[in-house]
């Protein structure tokens, strides 16, 4: 990339089929094994290794087991705080969701470009985040109608609403409810994409500034480089926060379905 005169900050989001799989299809739909799918595979493998390492089931845990138990305990506490005792049965889903997004975000931030590989953050694609959001939303709908039947529609009428206000409040509540999967998916996609674009733009400042001469290098390249280090730390934080927000909002939405007000 350094060799190119111009750095394209959007190039990192390009999806490319790998190893001649471009033609793979199922029922007319293309299922090429792309770099995005490769990083999903890497995320899954790393996550599996991480959790499997904590599966020693020792009474006195080692460091690795302690780390895994910290994550499960964190999700367990979050669900218990938001949903209550009934929240425990959602731990497998919310844990998978949180860890999958967290590992995807963090793996996508790895500075593998130094050794010539191109990390790909599939959570910066709204196709992916959208599917996860729709999954969460579908669980909310299924749980809501399963537990409360048609009574689940009373979710759109907050408790204590005066009768004349119901025709006004209900559509607003309905719209805010239907917006949930979009806000859920877009939030993660936008946060991840913005961070990666920002890093790429700053890196192009560093490269172009340095190429333009020592003066520009010191004037533009060096401050950009220092800023980039700070933004990298911020991105690590954002990677964690966005995974947390996704899991937290999912648990809040499930709480609506589980406890209905």
């Amino acid at each position: 990339m350094a060799a190119e005169a111009k750095v394209d900050p959007m190039h990192q989001f390009t999806i490319e089929p790998l190893g001649g799989t471009a033609g793979w299809e199922i029922a007319g739909y293309n299922i090429a094994f792309t770099n995005s799918a490769l990083w999903m595979l890497i995320t899954t493998v790393v996550l599996t290794l991480f959790v499997a390492g904590g599966l020693k089931r020792q009474m006195v845990p080692g460091r690795w087991q302690m780390a895994v138990e910290t994550f499960t305990g964190f999700i367990d506490n979050m669900l218990e705080a938001n949903i209550g005792k009934a929240g425990r049965k959602y731990v497998p889903y919310v844990f998978s969701l949180f860890m999958f997004i967290l590992f995807a975000n963090l793996l996508g931030l790895l500075p593998l470009g130094v050794v010539g590989l191109h990390p790909f953050t599939f959570t910066s694609h709204f196709t992916v985040t959208g599917v996860l959001a729709v999954l969460s939303f579908a669980i909310v709908l299924v749980v809501g109608f399963w537990r409360h039947g048609l009574h689940f529609f009373s979710l759109f009428v907050p408790q204590g609403t005066p009768l004349p206000m119901i025709p006004v409040i209900a559509p607003i509540e309905f719209i805010s409810f239907m917006v949930r999967p979009f806000s859920l998916g877009l939030r993660l996609f936008v946060a991840m994409m913005a961070g990666h674009v920002l890093l790429e733009v700053l890196s192009s400042f560093v490269i172009d500034g340095t190429n333009a001469g020592v003066g520009f290098g010191l004037l533009v390249g060096l401050p950009s480089f220092i800023l980039m280090i700070g933004i990298c730390a911020l991105e690590l934080l954002v990677a964690g926060i966005q995974a947390y927000v996704f899991a937290l909002l999912t648990s809040l939405y499930i709480n609506d379905a589980e406890n209905l007000h």
């Binding site: 293309n30 090429a32 792309t34 995005s36 999903m40 595979l41 899954t44 599996t48 992916v128 599917v131």
Partner: peptide
């Protein structure tokens, strides 16, 4: 051109994550 492969592989790998890990 990519939405179907994205969804397909995400469901495969997230499904694996959910059923095996979760």
């Amino acid at each position: 051109e990519t939405y179907s492969s994205q969804i397909f592989w995400l469901l495969i790998f997230f499904g694996f994550t959910f059923f095996v890990i979760g």
